[in-house]
Each structure stands twice: as structure tokens, then as C-alpha cells.
Amino acid sequence: MFLASVADPLDAILRDHANYAAFTTVKAFTEFVGTNSFAGAHKPDDPEQTRLFDVWVDGYGFIGPQQFVADFGHLPSPRVVYTGKLTGTFLEAVRVGRYGVAEGVVCKGGTGGVDVWMVKVKTYAYLERLKESFGARWEDYWE
């Protein structure tokens, strides 16, 4: 499934796009998810997919969030729920569940290369599921 959904189209972009064709080493970061995946555990019969969430280019660094969406956003990847300044209001909105995400979001900023930063923000509902499932070890799976 990885080859069909992400690797083949990613390879075509990297070979044909002027921004990437000259680079020899590129790392693609993906997440394997299923409908009932939770805290990195997957159900054997669950329909699964691979989502691309970052691209790193040797000699440059991480592709910035706007460029990532422009170049790779049509591939299976997490949806963009917000663009704008990272504020406490936005972080709290994620935590209370206003964006309809099961686990949370990864906020990214910067233009690319060493300028890229990122932070995870998880929902309070996910926190409660972690506590129910893992007891005292819930922090092993938190932000």
C-alpha cells in the first residue's frame, strides 16, 4: 500500500520538480494509520493507510509547511486545520476538540531548511483515553 499511495507519486514529484531534482538524498516521513489505531497500536484487520507528513532534503533541511502543502498536499497526508499565528487560543481550541481531530495536531512554521519548527498539541479527549488505557504510563504517549 505504501508504494501505491505515497512512494510512487512522491518519487515522481522528487524526480520531476525543479526544487528537488538536483538533490540526491531525500527522506520522507510517514505515519501508518488505521480507522481504529490508537497510541501507535493497530488492529490486524483494520483498513490502513500511509500518510506523508514531512520531507527532509539533504543539504537543505525540512520543507517548510507552505511549500509542503503546495508540492505534496495532494498525496495522502494529514489535513490542514488552520493557518495563521500560533496562539494560546488556537492551542486551547485544539485541546477542547474544536477541530474534529481524534488525537491532536502538529503545528509547523518557518519557510524551510533549518528555519522549520514544529510542536504537537493533543486533545483532552485523547489524554483521557491515554489515562484509561495506560494508567500511570499515559505520559509515555502524550505530547
Rank of each mutant, 00 (worst) to 15 (best):
A4F: 11
S5R: 15
S5W: 12
V6F: 14
A7M: 15
D11K: 09
L14T: 05
R15S: 11
H17K: 03
A18K: 14
A18Y: 08
N19S: 09
Y20D: 08
A21E: 01
A21S: 07
F23D: 07
A28M: 11
F29E: 10
F29Q: 14
E31D: 04
V33N: 03
N36C: 13
N36V: 09
F38L: 13
G40T: 02
G40M: 00
G40E: 02
G40H: 06
E48P: 06
Q49V: 15
Q49E: 15
V55W: 02
V55H: 08
V57L: 10
D58W: 12
D58L: 06
G61V: 11
F62G: 04
I63K: 02
P65Q: 09
Q67D: 07
Q67N: 15
F68M: 01
V69H: 14
V69Q: 15
H74W: 05
H74M: 07
H74K: 12
L75W: 07
P76Y: 03
P78V: 01
V80Y: 03
Y82H: 13
Y82A: 08
T83S: 14
G84E: 06
G84Y: 00
L86S: 06
L86N: 04
L86Y: 11
G88Y: 07
T89M: 14
T89W: 09
F90S: 01
E92M: 05
V94P: 01
V94Y: 01
V96W: 08
G97Y: 04
R98S: 01
Y99R: 11
Y99Q: 06
A102V: 04
G104Y: 01
G104H: 00
V105C: 10
V106W: 05
V106G: 08
K108N: 08
G109C: 14
G109W: 15
G109I: 11
G110I: 02
G110M: 00
D115K: 05
V116Q: 07
V116T: 10
M118T: 12
K122H: 07
K122A: 13
T123F: 01
A125S: 01
A125E: 07
A125P: 02
A125L: 04
E128A: 09
K131A: 12
E132K: 15
E132S: 13
S133P: 05
S133C: 12
F134Y: 13
G135L: 07
R137Y: 08
E139I: 14
D140P: 02
D140T: 13
E143S: 13
